[in-house]
Structures are given as structure tokens and as C-alpha cells.
């Protein structure tokens, strides 16, 4: 049938703007300036400067992902149990803030966290010790949690809302208490959503360069900052591509896990 031909624009577009560009990253990453094959750009990750940036990024993104998970799980459960119009509430919490520019929202945290900022004014009015986390890794973690929390809540909510209430009631009928029901029934059933949420938070957190720049006071370099500098300032595309390949290894590892755990595509966030 000629209906299949309708996929041609999409296939062409994906080949041209998704596949070919990715191949180019690999090409530049695996060659030097003269075009000769080399592993140097990838091995450059081992230098002190780069490995420190990668380690810092890994550390902060893992911490942020864990915090997001801990915050989002109860939130998703509460949202599931609410009877009010959930959709409009979800939109209010997660989609609406996106219409305020992401950079401005992150920048607003600067105003809130500054030494003489809003939060410290409130704290000192209450005679509490002041909070000095601006330009430290803590502020970056806060920015990451703030920006990526929705990506954790939505997939979790999507799996939790689909759990059959009868299954939970059956567990209670068979004598399980609240904790047992949670750990033996609800938690295992929510795993696909959890893994998909972890991917959705971990990848952007690992690769961000904006949050660290705005809230880290440009003292803290993450791997994203290093790559961004290679492309926009130093102009060493080969090195930038090589480091991106290293980053992609982490992303691919993450993708494989989420594909294995989410075969049905149940936790698709949209």
C-alpha cells in the first residue's frame, strides 16, 4: 500500500538530521585536525582537568537524581490518590512553569539564594542561621532538582495511576499491612516508571552546562561546560566530539537499562 510512503519525510528527516549528525560526532571524535584516525580525543577524558569535570558531573547528577526520586515518589502517589481534576493540576505544576523561560527561572534562584537574597532575609528575620549555598555544588544540585523534577514525577505518575486498585485491595484482603503492600505490590509495579524517570533526570543533569554556569558561579566546571567551551570558545571540535562520545557511553548505558525495563513503552512520559 502507498500508505507506507507517508513515512518517507520522517525517514528522510531522521536520516539527515539525527543519524548523519551523530555519525559526524563520531567522525570528529575519532580523528585529529588533519583527519587521521586517533583515539586521543576520547582518551583525553583521562587528563586531570577532564576527569575531574566528568567526576563532578557524575556526582552531582547522581545526587540530584536520588533527591528527585525521593521527592517525586510521594508526590506521584498523592497525585494518584487525589480525586480532583488531576490533569489540570499536573499541567499547573509541571507544564505551566515551562512558559517562564528556563534560564530566567534558574536565574531567579540566584536572587533567592544570594547572601542578601530573599531566603536569607526571611531566615534572618526569623533569627535563623543564614544559608550560603550560592556558587557551591549545593546550589547546582538545587537547580538540577528544580529543573528536572517534573521529568521524574510524570513517568512515575503514569505507572502508578495504571495499577489496578483491585490488586492493592487483594493484598490487604490477604492480610498484608501497608508497608508490605507497598514493598511487595506497588513498588515492583512502579519500577518501569522509576527507571524511565531516572533516565529522564540523569541525562540532562549529567550534561548540563547552563545550571552550573548560572548557579555555580563559573568556578565549578562540569563536563557539559568543558564540551561547550571546546565548541564555542576554543573551537577544538575534535576534542569536543571525543568528550561527547564519552558522555554518550553513559547515555547509551542508561538507555539500554530503560529499554530492558520498559519493553511495553508503558512509561512513556507523554
Amino acid at each position: 500500500m502507498n500508505r507506507k510512503l507517508l513515512s518517507l519525510p520522517f525517514i528522510f528527516w531522521s536520516a539527515m538530521f539525527v543519524i548523519v549528525p551523530l555519525c559526524m560526532v563520531f567522525y570528529y571524535g575519532l580523528t585529529d585536525k588533519s583527519g587521521a584516525f586517533t583515539f586521543d580525543n576520547i582518551l583525553a577524558i583521562a587528563t586531570v582537568e577532564h576527569s575531574k569535570a566528568l567526576w563532578e558531573a557524575l556526582k552531582l547528577s547522581v545526587i540530584s537524581t536520588v533527591i528527585c526520586l525521593l521527592l517525586a515518589y510521594p508526590l506521584a502517589m498523592i497525585l494518584c490518590n487525589m480525586n480532583v481534576n488531576q490533569n489540570s493540576f499536573l499541567v499547573l505544576i509541571f507544564i505551566l512553569p515551562m512558559w517562564m523561560n528556563f534560564l530566567l527561572r534558574t536565574l531567579a534562584w540566584q536572587t533567592l539564594l544570594e547572601k542578601t537574597g530573599v531566603i536569607n532575609s526571611i531566615l534572618s528575620a526569623l533569627h535563623l542561621p543564614s544559608l550560603n549555598i550560592i556558587n557551591t555544588p549545593y546550589a547546582i544540585v538545587l537547580g538540577m532538582v528544580y529543573n528536572f523534577l517534573p521529568f521524574m514525577v510524570l513517568p512515575l505518575y503514569n505507572v502508578l495511576v495504571k495499577i489496578d486498585k483491585n490488586v492493592i485491595n487483594a493484598a490487604y484482603d490477604l492480610g498484608a499491612n501497608g508497608a508490605q503492600t507497598f514493598f511487595r505490590i506497588i513498588f515492583p509495579l512502579s519500577l518501569p516508571g522509576m527507571f524511565s524517570g531516572i533516565t529522564m533526570v540523569f541525562v540532562p543533569a549529567l550534561t548540563t552546562f547552563v545550571i552550573s554556569k548560572i548557579l555555580g558561579g563559573s568556578k565549578i566546571l562540569l563536563i557539559g561546560n568543558v564540551i561547550e567551551q571546546e565548541f564555542t570558545q576554543t573551537g577544538n571540535w575534535n576534542l569536543g566530539s571525543g568528550l561527547s562520545i564519552v558522555l554518550m557511553l553513559f547515555i547509551i548505558f542508561n538507555m539500554v537499562i530503560s529499554v530492558i525495563t520498559d519493553k511495553e513503552g508503558e512509561a512513556n512520559t507523554l
Partner: peptide, 19 residues
């Protein structure tokens, strides 16, 4: 379809820049 969704934005960005 899932590649641009799951890939890091910075990688999508630089790959298009290189293209």
C-alpha cells in the same frame, strides 16, 4: 524517534552544529 528524546541536548546541539 527516541534518539533525540533520550540523547543529551548538548550532543544533539553539537551534532547539528557539525552537520
Amino acid at each position: 524517534t527516541n534518539i533525540p528524546m533520550l540523547n543529551a541536548e548538548i550532543v544533539t546541539g553539537i551534532s547539528l552544529m557539525l552537520l
